[in-house]
Amino acid sequence: MTVPVAPAARDALVARLRRAGCVWAEDEIRLLVEAAGSPEALAGLVERRATGEPLEYLLGWAEFCGERIGVEPGVFVPRTRTALLVSAAAAVTGPAATVVELCCGSGAVTRALARRLAAPRLLAAVDLDPAAAACARRNLAALAVPVFAGDLFDPLPAAWRGGLDLVVANAPYVPTAAIALMPPESRDHEALTAVDGGPDGLTVLRRLAVAGASWLAPGGHLVVEVGEAQVDELRTVLTEAGLAPTVVRDGDLGAVAITARRPAAVAGGPDEN
């Protein structure tokens, strides 16, 4: 039930968020009014937002690729720019694909891909953080997608090795020193493991590239998000791992993704596995 708020009171709430640096204060107040169950609850939500708590945690959801994805405190909030990761992955994946999302956070990418891919045979998701894995299970329950808690490919059934058509990951890629420059709502509230990519931001992505080559089926793709300054280095890493990378950019989203294909097996020759 939407809490009735007099115009003067609403203006005061908007002013409170503006003073706190919230650029879209009017929109945020509208959402918080819809989410609050009482005037007292609304006042509490506004104060929490003004002190830096992410809006998505207060609402309990984040909008991503046209859907509301459940999020909880500590779980990585899906970003608008990650829509490029979804479209890049869908563009290289054929029908009846076997698909795994690593570093899945809330499971937002898997939810979006499930709508876009034609009759996938398998969708699964993995996250190192048990809280994120639990959140993803709730978001993916209606799709009957299994969610594993563990490090990259480690918790997946060994029988899947060499048979995945698509591995997609929004792995952490922020250099450790740059975390201090991130907005406080991310730096102070999201799990560090979801954003910290090590000294140059590529620690997890390097491991993913090396391991991913053996988990992909011939002709399968690894698709990841990355920072613009890291493109050349990651492209080299992927090439050295035996994958063929292609860079995809979206200037409107300010996003970069790389699709990396495992070469198909040579006709008449032994499988690379």
Rank of each mutant, 00 (worst) to 15 (best):
T2K: 15
A6Q: 10
V14T: 12
L17C: 11
L17I: 08
L17K: 11
R19I: 10
C22A: 14
A25H: 11
E26C: 06
D27W: 08
A35R: 15
G37D: 10
A41V: 15
L45M: 15
R48S: 12
G52Q: 13
E53W: 11
P54L: 02
Y57N: 09
L59R: 13
A62G: 07
V71W: 13
V77A: 04
R79Q: 14
R81K: 15
V92L: 09
G94A: 12
P95R: 04
A96Q: 13
L102R: 11
C103Q: 06
C104I: 07
T110F: 04
A112K: 11
A114W: 06
P120W: 08
L122V: 02
L128E: 11
D129G: 08
A133C: 07
A133G: 13
A134T: 10
A136C: 02
A136W: 01
R138Q: 08
N139F: 09
L140Y: 04
A141T: 00
A141L: 02
L152R: 04
D154K: 11
P157N: 03
A159S: 14
L164A: 00
L164Y: 04
L164H: 02
N170G: 15
N170M: 08
P172H: 05
P172C: 06
V174G: 01
P175W: 01
T176C: 00
A177M: 00
E185Q: 11
E185H: 12
D188Y: 07
D188W: 11
H189C: 14
G198V: 06
G198P: 01
R206Y: 00
R207M: 02
A209L: 04
G212N: 03
L222A: 10
V223A: 09
V224E: 01
E228G: 05
Q230S: 08
E233L: 03
V237G: 11
V237Q: 10
A241H: 05
L243N: 10
T246V: 15
A255N: 05
A257R: 01
P263V: 08
P270I: 13
D271S: 14
